[in-house]
């Protein structure tokens, strides 16, 4: 029953909301450094950021994910997040099971930092996000980044790790689309309840949407 009480109160929600809010700011700062991103219209920048934010957060969180105990460990054990912590923030295994699988698969690619960064940039500059106006401009920026990534792998990533690496990375972007969809579903559910949406931050509400308004 204490477990039920903890769940109904979503004891980790305020903390996770803060963490996600902070991460969104990092994603915005990162996007602004991608060549060409600032040249897009403000509307396209906003559409791209809102649609990719959760995917980039999932990607960047891989740096703190450890296969040792399948947790996100930031520095010391004081900042260790387990699946159970995320369920206490209102998410279910329908998201967390594929998310952990995704983290394990991505970790096993042993990406260089350069590849990791390029993958996040390619994710943000996806021309097929709903609402993008200048799709051809976004596409040309993404194409340039993909070329750089493929060249990097060819020249700097030794075999056998480089084998099919680019294809595997693109598959990760596909995985992120379904994780994004499931996250949206669960977020919508959560934000429908005022007692929970009031624990979110203004930035989270703006980026993921505010159902109570």
């Amino acid at each position: 029953s204490s477990m039920n009480l903890e769940f109904s109160q979503l004891s980790m929600l305020p903390h996770l909301a803060d963490l996600v809010s902070y991460s969104i700011q990092k994603v915005i700062g990162f996007a602004k450094m991608i060549p060409g991103f600032r040249d897009l219209s403000a509307e396209d920048q906003i559409v791209l950021l809102k649609s990719s934010a959760i995917e980039v957060i999932m990607l960047r969180s891989n740096q703190s994910f450890t296969l040792e105990d399948m947790s996100w460990t930031c520095g010391s054990n004081d900042f260790k997040y387990r699946v159970s912590d995320v369920t206490q923030a209102g998410h279910s295994m329908d998201l967390l099971e594929p998310l952990v699988k995704f983290q394990v698969g991505l970790k096993k690619l042993n990406l260089h930092e350069e590849e990791h960064v390029l993958l996040m940039a390619i994710c943000i500059l996806s021309p097929d996000r709903p609402g993008v106006q200048d799709t051809s401009l976004v596409e040309s920026l993404q194409d340039k980044l993909s070329e750089i990534l493929q060249t990097y792998i060819r020249c700097r990533h030794p075999p056998p790790g480089s084998r099919l690496l680019y294809a595997k990375m693109i598959q990760k972007l596909a995985d992120l689309r379904s994780l994004n969809e499931e996250h949206s579903r669960q977020y919508r559910c959560l934000s429908f309840q005022p007692e929970h949406s009031m624990q979110l931050t203004p930035l989270v509400l703006e980026v993921f949407g505010n159902e109570i308004s």
Partner: peptide
């Protein structure tokens, strides 16, 4: 549905450092 203005996002995109 109310019109989205994305004021926070606009602000964070405009400011020089995040």
């Amino acid at each position: 549905k109310k019109k989205e203005n994305n004021a926070l996002l606009r602000y964070l995109l405009d400011k020089d450092d995040v």
